[in-house]
């Protein structure tokens, strides 16, 4: 079943995330990060940073940091067991740190298929802001296998 293109333009309900050093510490451990500005508050402050630095891909994690991160796909009737991550990109405007509170405003910007519908693609673009200031653009393409 093809996803209805009427969902293009659908807004994803806004959510906000308070970024903690605890979460970043686990991310650093999981990814083998050795530079302490990514997991140690003291080291980050010594380096002149206001908090632990969120690494480049962490915006995706924060975008997913809600009870049903793929609710937009479920709304479209997709089986999340057939989902693959197709593409992911970021445009960076400002670094973010532990202690920051960020808001995420997403929109479905495209839906298309390839191979006669065997692969369907759902594109989501998210604006991440801190106190109203744009800090990152997050672009995701999820693939649903038929």
């Amino acid at each position: 079943m093809l996803i209805d293109k009427k969902h293009i333009g659908m807004k994803v309900p806004q959510h906000s995330v308070h970024l903690t050093a605890w979460q970043l510490k686990w991310f650093a451990k999981a990814t083998g990060e050795k530079n302490p500005i990514y997991f140690d508050e003291e080291a980050a402050k010594k380096a002149g940073l206001p908090g632990v630095l969120a690494p480049p891909t962490f915006f995706f994690c924060m975008d997913m940091d809600k009870e049903h991160p793929f609710d937009y796909l479920e709304t479209m009737g997709c089986d999340l067991g057939k989902m693959l991550h197709g593409e992911q990109s970021f445009v960076y405007h400002k670094p973010v740190y532990s202690g920051d509170t960020l808001t995420f405003d997403g929109e479905i910007t495209d839906i298309y298929d390839k191979k006669n519908g065997a692969l369907q693609f759902v594109v989501k673009d998210v604006k991440v802001r801190r106190m109203g200031e744009l800090v990152c653009d997050v672009h995701s393409v999820m693939v649903i296998r038929g």
């Binding site: 999981a30 083998g32 690494p55 480049p56 891909t57 994690c61 693959l84 992911q88 960076y92």
Partner: peptide
Amino acid sequence: MLGMAYLGRMLTQWVPQEAIRSFGVRF
């Protein structure tokens, strides 16, 4: 995203993270 995080680590080992303007991956 684990692999993308590793690619990100390669970048931030080379330059300070503030130097990265954009970063995109196809899986």
